[in-house]
């Protein structure tokens, strides 16, 4: 537990809004110095954050249709896993994911992008 808290502190959580500000099965954009980040909300009120750029041709993922734990890119309908940022096979590629969590109904985002993803 202690370990998790430490991690939390290190990550510098930023309050970006309320859960209700994001439509269910939808997304909103956070403009950041790292570029746009899409914050998604699933049917079961889980939140995920990805770089708002499809690994295929850079389409804004925030504008896509959210289904299950995936989003369909609006440009060419690539499907991206919301948790990992990886494209659903057989497509290959990945959008960097960002830590995001709920504190009550407040959405907290960290700008520490996940490692191992070329599309940061």
């Amino acid at each position: 537990m202690q370990h998790v808290e430490k991690l939390d502190m290190a990550q510098d959580w930023i309050e970006v809004g309320k859960l209700a500000d994001i439509p269910r099965l939808g997304a909103r954009v956070v403009n950041s110095p790292l570029g746009d980040i899409a914050v998604f909300r699933t049917a079961s009120d889980e939140v995920f954050a990805l770089r708002d750029k499809c690994p295929h041709k850079g389409g804004p993922l925030s504008q896509g249709i959210v289904h299950g734990k995936r989003v369909a890119c609006p440009l060419h309908d690539w499907k991206i896993h919301l948790d990992s940022g990886e494209a659903v096979a057989p497509d290959e590629g990945c959008a960097a994911s960002f830590p995001v969590k709920l504190d009550g109904d407040t959405v907290l985002l960290s700008l520490a992008a996940s490692d191992g993803c070329p599309n940061k």
């Binding site: 099965l25 850079g58 389409g59 504008q63 609006p74 440009l75």
Partner: peptide, 19 residues
Amino acid sequence: DYQSRFINERAHANIQNDG
């Protein structure tokens, strides 16, 4: 149900290749 519409019909404008 707006969340089930393709972005163009949600935003009432046509998305282009650069977003």
